[in-house]
């Protein structure tokens, strides 16, 4: 009697293990505003904060958040920061705020967030909480009437590779992991409580034009484009130096292989001579010889990340240029009238 029960319980536990993939991040309007406030107040310096919420099936609800103080490279202050975090969580729990950590948010400059640090932080979070997400907000874009809010997570296959810390070309090819597969963007939903919705409707009469519209129709995009291009050029240079590294590695590798071949041939000839003289042949391998020492392959992670950045800048430039086209044609139409 107990046996099938136990089994079914075990089964239940086992089926629990298979978590449905994260599909949507649902943010409260409060969280959106808090993040914007924090990021904007400190812009252009970059800030981070913690996200609190609930994990409900394939939806991750982000119901609250709190900012971190600006980090300093001091150990004492670092400990202080951890205290701050615990204190804040405790305080928020007392007033019935969800106190599960579900990830963190950070501000970014022109979308230059794809860094090794982000991946490291993500892995740290991932170790403690199964499902975590990173929300990126770009204050510089809000001047164009765009709400640049993004929810990101690392793809599972990438995390696996990162754990084994093995970014050789062979492994990447095996996993079929391309640079686009590092980050996964998750669609964001925004929800508000009925109370807030009522307040907002009451307080804010429907106006035909908002600040947003002015920002969007602003013709001047040159400064934004210029900075984007600057960043893009920097990234291209980085990418070039990464590629040089690889070329250097391959050159060395082929030189080593040629040396190995030459050594082997010599050894074989020697062995033939020894056999003719009736002596024992020498082994065809010599681990002590420096030319058999394998050359470490440089990690491809950096070049992947840089590629991601470059692609990001390209997308931004394309997007802004596209908007700028429509604005220009709009202006032409207005002018002709």
């Amino acid at each position: 009697m107990a046996n099938p029960m136990a089994r079914s319980f075990l089964q239940a536990v086992a089926s629990e293990e298979v978590a449905s993939p994260l599909r949507v991040v649902q943010m409260e309007g409060l969280t959106v505003l808090k993040i914007i406030k924090h990021c904007k107040e400190f812009s252009p310096s970059l800030v981070t904060g913690q996200l609190l919420g609930l994990d409900v099936g394939s939806v991750l609800e982000v119901t609250n958040c709190f900012p971190f103080p600006i980090r300093e490279e001091d150990e004492e202050i670092e400990a202080d920061g951890a205290n701050y975090q615990l204190e804040m969580m405790r305080c928020l729990r007392e007033v019935n705020v969800d106190n599960n950590t579900v990830g963190w948010y950070q501000s970014t400059l022109l979308g230059s967030f794809q860094t090794a640090e982000l991946i490291e932080t993500f892995m740290n979070y991932q170790e403690n909480i199964r499902r975590c997400v990173c929300i990126i907000y770009d204050p510089s874009k809000s001047n164009q009437g765009v709400l640049a809010l993004k929810a990101l997570k690392l793809s599972d296959s990438f995390m696996e590779l990162y754990r084994s810390n093995n970014f050789t070309g062979e492994k990447l090819r095996e996993k079929k992991l391309a640079w686009v597969d590092i980050f996964e963007e998750i669609p964001i939903k925004v929800s508000n409580s009925a109370l807030i919705s009522a307040f907002m409707t009451e307080l804010e009469p429907e106006s035909p034009v908002s600040q947003c519209d002015y920002d969007r129709l602003n013709l001047s995009t040159a400064p934004y484009m210029e900075r984007n291009l600057e960043f893009l050029i920097e990234c291209m240079e980085d990418l070039l130096s990464e590629q040089n590294k690889f070329q250097y590695y391959y050159r060395n590798l082929s030189r080593q292989q040629a040396q190995q071949q030459a050594w082997l041939q010599k050894r074989r000839q020697e062995n033939v001579a020894r056999k003719a003289a009736g002596e024992e042949p020498l082994p065809e391998e010599d681990p002590s010889n420096p030319i058999f020492k394998p050359i470490p392959e440089p990690s491809r992670l950096d070049s992947y990340l840089i590629t991601n950045q470059v692609a990001n800048y390209c997308n931004q430039i394309n997007g802004v240029a596209g908007q700028s086209f429509s604005r220009l044609y709009l202006m032409k139409a207005l002018h002709d009238n």
Partner: peptide
């Protein structure tokens, strides 16, 4: 501040 985000986002419940 809310204007920049857009009221559509903050007014409705979903």
């Amino acid at each position: 501040e809310a204007e920049r985000v857009g009221f559509d986002l903050l007014k409705t419940t979903n």
